[in-house]
């Protein structure tokens, strides 16, 4: 296992980010006008809000948005929902658990690249972008910000991240309270955790206008180095298991991972989550564009 903070050179170059942002802007803009997501209005930040609906209060909601009249009528806290007329809030949720840094840490590097690219593209479109890195708990938060001046802070947050070598499991639910108001979520994770993190995804889906899930995996992580026998240990839970047959074990691991992806895919389809499984051997530009295309088509 190799972990460590990334250096700026490991991130996508500015030209790559701008190239991707141009493609992503088209997909994200069209989607905003046609889909469920927030309507994107360029260069109109700070304009007034229009009341859209009511919903029950959830922890983290701003108190000023409580509709006291409805609250008194329904006997429970109800807040007002507003249509975002200026821009949307995007929360990029980055899994920084120990499983993301196993093997050659290619998963972590790829996840950071994708998060950086998505943040750049969204900031280019005028959205407010927040970064939430999570493992067993929220590790780092880059508060929502807007504009090109916010991007360096995003980068600093990402570069400062360093997944723990062990004992840091994925707790996506810890991010839920960080989401405020109407926001969209973009989860980048390997979804290796209890029940494939599906309960947490379901809870997030309830709080987000739209939710994207990008599953990151590396085929090399499903291979064993050299002849066995091995003692496999889970970097997150610390559990161990013996493995004698290398080929059979690798084959079983590939099958188990394929089943995981299938479960996530079915769950995402049912839950209205834009889901993409990404083998880090593929370039992040292609994967993100494909993902946005599929989300746009949906």
């Amino acid at each position: 296992m190799a972990t460590g903070a990334l250096n700026p050179a490991a991130l996508p170059s500015h030209a790559e980010l701008r190239s991707f942002a141009r493609v992503a802007a088209h997909l994200l803009t069209e989607h905003a006008t046609q889909g469920l997501g927030p309507r994107t209005v360029r260069r109109r930040a700070g304009a007034g809000l229009q009341h859209l609906d009511h919903r029950d209060y959830a922890p983290g909601d701003e108190v000023r948005h409580i509709d006291w009249r409805q609250t008194a009528r329904r006997q429970r806290p109800v807040i007002r929902q507003f249509e975002a007329e200026t821009s949307g809030d995007w929360f990029l949720l980055l899994d920084a658990s120990s499983s993301m840094a196993t093997g050659s840490a290619r998963k972590w590097q790829a996840a950071v690249s994708a998060t950086t690219a998505m943040a750049f593209a969204l900031l280019e479109l005028g959205h407010r972008v927040a970064i939430v890195a999570f493992a067993s708990d929220v590790l780092a938060v880059c508060p929502p910000g807007r504009g090109a001046r916010h991007f360096p802070q995003v980068v600093r947050t990402l570069l400062a991240l360093r997944p723990a070598e062990s004992a840091a499991h994925s707790n996506l639910a810890a991010c839920a309270r960080r989401l405020r108001g109407t926001a969209s979520g973009f989860v980048v994770s390997d979804f290796l955790g209890p029940a494939d993190l599906r309960p947490s995804l379901a809870a997030l889906r309830e709080r987000c206008v739209q939710l994207h899930a990008l599953e990151v995996h590396a085929t090399a992580d499903l291979q064993l180095p050299g002849p066995g026998p091995f003692e496999l240990y889970d970097v997150e839970s610390g559990a161990t298991a013996n493995c004698s047959g290398r080929a059979a074990a690798e084959s079983a691991a590939r099958a188990a991972h394929a089943a995981l992806l299938l479960r996530l895919q079915r769950f995402s389809t049912r839950s209205g989550i834009a889901f993409t499984a990404w083998d880090v051997a593929q370039p992040w530009q292609r994967v993100l564009v494909d993902h946005l295309l599929r989300a746009h088509a949906a």
């Binding site: 296992m1 120990s98 499983s99 993301m100 196993t102 093997g103 998963k107 062990s166 390997d190 290796l192 955790g193 992580d221 064993l224 180095p225 050299g226 066995g228 026998p229 091995f230 003692e231 496999l232 240990y233 889970d234 970097v235 997150e236 839970s237 559990a239 161990t240 298991a241 013996n242 493995c243 691991a253």
Partner: peptide, 9 residues
């Protein structure tokens, strides 16, 4: 045994 870390057991 040769100890090998895996992302998820």
């Amino acid at each position: 045994l040769r100890r090998h870390p895996v992302a998820s057991l």
